[in-house]
Design a binder for these strands. Structure first.
Lengths: 200, 200
DNA sequence: TTGCTTCTGTCATGGTGTGACAGTATCGTC
DNA sequence: GACGATACTGTCACACCATGACAGAAGCAA
């Protein structure tokens, strides 16, 4: 009978996932990912390490907290895109559009992507984190092509789209002379042409 | 001065990486990857768990022992391929050719790929293991296009080629009604066309 | 036998991640 | 204000992975 709850109940959380995330990013930047223990993060956040693992599944999960939420954005963008566009063009428009980060977030994004790219343990965790993102693309491709998202080509489209975007991210982190969207657009255009040898 | 060694020296190994690998695969099949401890593998192999970690970097590394050696095969195949072929066609020919596994190895390959696809910890380890494979493709693409392998497009070609192959592998493991090379060929042909919507 | 080399086991240790359980802080209700 | 329900927290114990240090074992060559 006590179903409908007004606002909240029980003891309020000591902190928030976002706050812990920022502390973790700070420590990772100071002394590296491997040399930072969960206990250090928890201590600076004012909680026990046991509580850290209630906020995040693993030490690596901290880096993906923001990203996980962006998959929903991606899905809704696919729902809104014009289906008159050729398939790969629609995907490019959606992906580039979703990645127009606000200027204030660029520094944090860059730090995060740099860590993911340079720390083996984080690169390893990437695969499972990117999976929902890939699936969103595969499902759109399947819908457009009238097949299951599990079919070979939709699956390949999801995977290769992510692969092209990761290449763009890596180049952007390494060079960074232009906006991220420029790199993404170039990589996805190349993918859509099948990487033809440009006649010069 | 004791440089040139005849055959061998020192205490001979108790076992071999290959023998430990087969034991591990057996145990993983029986009771799953997570529920198999390194100590169990080592015990059945007649060594201590410390010695296991001298044979393999980690528990997951066992699954990649064979794969690591195939990258050399891939590289030499790229050296031998006809450069007159269009770039993506050459890549397809090389990759499909390298994957013509002998019939006797198919069962083991399938078991391995199934584990890699279904166990999160193994999927996570995949990224770092595939990296040299991707690089081999990127280097060939860079050579053919007259750019660095680190440039955006060669990097994207390496990553997307692997992504397409992984899609083929997954479908082959799930369905498996035809030869692996059929799936690889189809995925790489689709990639080379930029996933155009087939007119029917 | 001696010395060198290579592989091995034992021991100790640090770190991740989880289950069990009790404690604490807030709610709504009487 | 006392009460129970709820949600979060800390402490404790534990299994497992992975690594460094060190000594012992087993082969070769002189």
């Amino acid at each position: 009978m006590t179903e409908a709850r007004g606002e909240r109940a029980g003891r309020p959380p000591s902190t928030s996932a976002r706050a812990v995330e920022l502390i973790a990013l700070e420590l990772f930047g100071e002394q590296g990912f491997e040399d930072t223990t969960v206990e250090q993060i928890a201590e600076r956040a004012g909680v026990s390490s046991r509580t850290f693992f209630r906020y995040f599944d693993s030490k690596a999960s901290v880096l993906w907290h923001q990203f996980d939420q962006e998959v929903a954005t991606l899905r809704s963008a696919f729902d809104a895109v014009d289906d008159e566009l050729p398939l790969m063009e629609a995907i490019r428009v959606v992906v580039v559009g979703v990645n127009r980060y606000r200027a204030q977030d660029v520094a944090e994004l860059r730090a995060r992507m740099h860590l993911i790219g340079s720390v083996p343990a984080l690169a390893a965790s990437a695969a499972s984190r990117y999976e929902p993102w890939e699936e969103a693309v595969s499902e759109y491709a399947g819908r457009r092509r009238g097949e299951s998202a599990d079919a070979l080509v939709p699956l390949a489209i999801g995977r290769t789209t992510l692969a092209a975007c990761r290449a763009a991210f890596d180049r952007w982190v390494a060079v960074g002379d232009a906006d991220l969207t420029v790199y993404l657009d170039a990589a996805l255009r190349a993918l859509a042409t099948g990487f033809v040898d440009e006649p010069h």
